[in-house]
């Protein structure tokens, strides 16, 4: 308790006009030659979509650098479209990990919603990075293969799908920072 940090409170249901007044879901234009689309749905434990969440992403550029020149690396999406969110961005490069070893390319994710007293934090990893994922320090720490699998997006051809299950069967793995 020493730091006296201000506690978290829920975002509540009425944040859209303040936080999503402008579209921040496209980190690069859709016609960018290296644009990828990441889509997903946020679900509750009953399997119902959560239509009042806000999803934020933060990731490195193609060279593994954060907040570099023209690429901010930050995005925001609502889930008013039946619980689903969507981002257009570029795939990040690998980034150094805690002990200097390389981490597989990944996207940091925060989810805020009514009913979440503090955000949940997760990571999106890429399905075409089998080798890098296998040696990633975070993924390889996770012994439960099914739990680890919740962090890897699914390739749907025109988009990568990353569904987020807040609770219940196949709950997404969440992190404490």
């Amino acid at each position: 308790m020493g730091s006296g940090r201000t506690p978290s409170q829920t975002i509540g249901p009425f944040f859209h006009d303040a936080l999503l007044d402008k579209d921040r879901s496209e980190l690069v234009p859709p016609d960018h030659p290296e644009a990828i689309r990441i889509v997903g749905t946020v679900y509750d434990s009953a399997g119902d979509p959560v239509p009042d969440a806000m999803v934020e992403i933060w990731h490195a550029d193609r060279a593994g650098r954060y907040d570099h020149e023209n690429f901010s690396g930050f995005g925001r999406s609502d889930t008013v479209d039946g619980g689903s969110f969507s981002f257009v961005t570029v795939k990040p490069g690998p980034v150094a990990g805690p002990d200097g070893e390389m981490q597989a390319p990944h996207v940091m994710v925060s989810v805020f919603a009514r009913g979440l007293l503090k955000r949940v934090v997760t990571r999106i990893y890429f399905p075409d990075e089998g080798e890098a994922n296998a040696s990633d320090p975070v993924l390889s720490f996770m012994e439960d293969a099914a739990f680890r699998e919740t962090l890897i997006a699914r390739d749907e051809g025109d988009a990568l799908r990353f569904d987020i299950r807040l609770q219940g069967e196949n709950q997404t793995a969440f992190f404490e920072l």
Partner: peptide, 8 residues
């Protein structure tokens, strides 16, 4: 929070 709180 009942249907949305992670438990793992």
């Amino acid at each position: 929070t009942r249907l949305r709180a992670p438990k793992e």
